[in-house]
């Protein structure tokens, strides 16, 4: 089965659940930024959790299907249109050979996941079909889609039909102010008590340059750091440290100005101090923040972070149960 890309959208990439295991040699995780929505889209069309889908950013693509297909769109509220007729999100629908899938304006959220029964068939790169565009690795020729690309789709794995949906109680929330829970980290002590209190008190807005690598937050007060002689190998700015590993979700504050949260295509190492790490259960939320979205950071401890991870898994279990 083949899908012809008529218009690519702003930045539409092939993504699966990513390629963990190579971060220590500088290859990031990649994969869908909203993993829950990616898995949901796959399950709706009878795919496995981690089959390759298309991740759209703000603006949907225009795709012509050369054969009949079953499709589901989840994540952001980006209404799908089949030959101009609106289709539901979070529900499987049919497309006939020759029909065009396009999208209306984004209503809320940021990224949508377009799953096609059988999954997007691009070659595996280091065990994953995810696109890491910065490194030209994986996905469709290592890059975002362009007009004229022809996507191959694999054979359907199990029976699934149109009309099967996921109820609103199992859609992730898209709140006005998104709370990102974070675990303070190794360098937390570098901030003054006042700076630490301000960090949680302030409302931060996601800067428009945010992408799959990371998101910068503006609008809160820049932190003051505790004075210290800079250690050997660290740069001269107080926000510099001797180079260290950057975890997925880590929050760095370059130049003591604005926090940046690293996401799926992040660099793996660098010399900025990290105040902590956004917990894994909340990383999907960042993938759905449009530019200027308001957020607050909320402090949790390890026990709360692990409970949040269990709650995330229970929500996925309920999603699976609702479709079986």
């Amino acid at each position: 089965m083949t899908v012809n890309v008529l218009q690519p959208g702003l930045s539409t990439t092939v993504q699966d659940l990513g390629r963990p295991g190579f971060y220590h040699v500088g290859i990031p995780l990649s994969g869908g930024m909203d993993r829950y929505a990616l898995i949901a889209a796959n399950l709706l069309v009878g795919n496995d959790d981690g089959d390759a889908v298309l991740e759209t950013t703000f603006l949907g693509p225009e795709l012509q299907f050369l054969e009949d297909a079953l499709v589901a769109v989840t994540g952001a509220d980006l209404p799908p249109l089949v030959d101009g007729v609106e289709q539901p999100v979070w529900e499987a629908f049919s497309i006939k050979a020759g029909q065009v899938l396009s999208f209306d304006y984004l209503r809320s959220g940021a990224r949508s996941y377009i799953a096609i029964a059988g999954g997007i068939d691009v070659p595996l790169a280091l065990g994953s079909r995810s696109t890491y565009a910065l490194g030209g690795l994986g996905g469709y020729q290592g890059r975002a889609l362009k007009a004229g690309d022809m996507l191959s789709v694999g054979p359907a794995k199990r029976p699934a039909g149109p009309g099967r949906g996921i109820g609103p109680e199992l859609h992730p929330p898209l709140p006005t102010v998104t709370e990102l829970r974070m675990l303070p980290g190794l360098y937390w002590h570098r901030m003054t008590d006042e700076a630490a209190a301000n960090f949680f008190e302030d409302v931060w807005k996601l800067a428009p340059e945010a992408d799959r690598i990371g998101g910068r937050f503006r609008g809160g007060r820049s932190p003051k750091l505790v004075d210290r002689p800079q250690p050997f190998g660290a740069g001269s700015n107080p926000s510099n440290i001797t180079d260290a590993c950057y975890p997925y979700g880590s929050i760095q504050i370059p130049g003591c100005l604005e926090p940046i949260v690293l996401h799926r295509d992040a660099v793996s190492v660098g010399g900025y101090f990290m105040v902590g790490t956004v917990i894994s259960a909340d990383m999907d939320l960042i993938g759905q923040l449009p530019p200027n979205a308001k957020t607050r950071f909320v402090k949790v401890d390890m026990e709360q972070a692990l409970e949040a991870r269990r709650a995330y898994r229970r929500r996925l279990d309920r999603l699976r149960a609702s479709l079986s």
């Binding site: 703000f58 603006l59 984004l106 428009p208 530019p291 200027n292």
Partner: peptide
């Protein structure tokens, strides 16, 4: 004319 994407105008 509408903005196709969110961002800064």
């Amino acid at each position: 004319v509408r903005a196709p994407i969110p961002g800064i105008f």
